[in-house]
Amino acid sequence: MCETCGCQTIHHHTSHRRVVDVFEGLLDANNAQAEANRRHIEAMGAVAINMISGPGSGKTTLLEKTIDLLKTRLRIGVIEGDIETELDADRIRAKGVPVVQLTTGGACHLDAPLIHQGIHSLERQLNGRGLDLLFIENVGNLVCPATFDLGEHRRVVLVSVPEGSDKPTKYPKAFMSSHAFIITKKDVLPYFDFSLEKAEIEALKLNPKLSVISLSAFTGEGLDAWVSYLRSLENRGRP
């Protein structure tokens, strides 16, 4: 008897139409790798932060300042994601911390398998030294990166003042899936029609648990709140 459908022939069961319930996530493969990355990063002793924003919001500049402020107290590593070039990695390398550049070759986001490679490259640079904070700077894009778990412990979404305070409303997924919302380039507020209050209210409507910090990496205003946020992750141990 056919084992698949119970009919009386042995060999022809493949011609029978049948329905198979699957019920698996389309992102299951990515998510399984992300979970493995998270465990791997924890085994290194680190907390990982995935930074998501549109191009030009100041992710790399904020990272440079963060490294300046924290590198004597914490061991920092960076994975840089870009479509092309090593430009961002060069800027971070100049700060004297281990950095890996991932180029996606056209893809609009980082995914967990790429980060897996990145972690291994970073480990070769670390050569047995531990890590406290791992920053992952995603490809500049406020849309696609929001869908992909990389294995981070905290996701941070950034919007700069020139981009406008309507960004949370227009790109909800990035805000719904993040833990913190950083408003950058606060020093140029007088020249733009940007409402800090509106941006915060709209973001909190989408995600009431968001921590909201506004800062300027240029003047240093607000960097203390950002540093406290990062240190709270470290003090809390693994989130």
């Binding site: 049948r18 329905v19 198979v20």
Partner: peptide, 12 residues
């Protein structure tokens, strides 16, 4: 509303 799932397939 944020589901991304493969539910079922029909095969032969």
């Amino acid at each position: 509303g944020d589901e991304l799932l493969l539910l079922q397939i029909k095969i032969e």
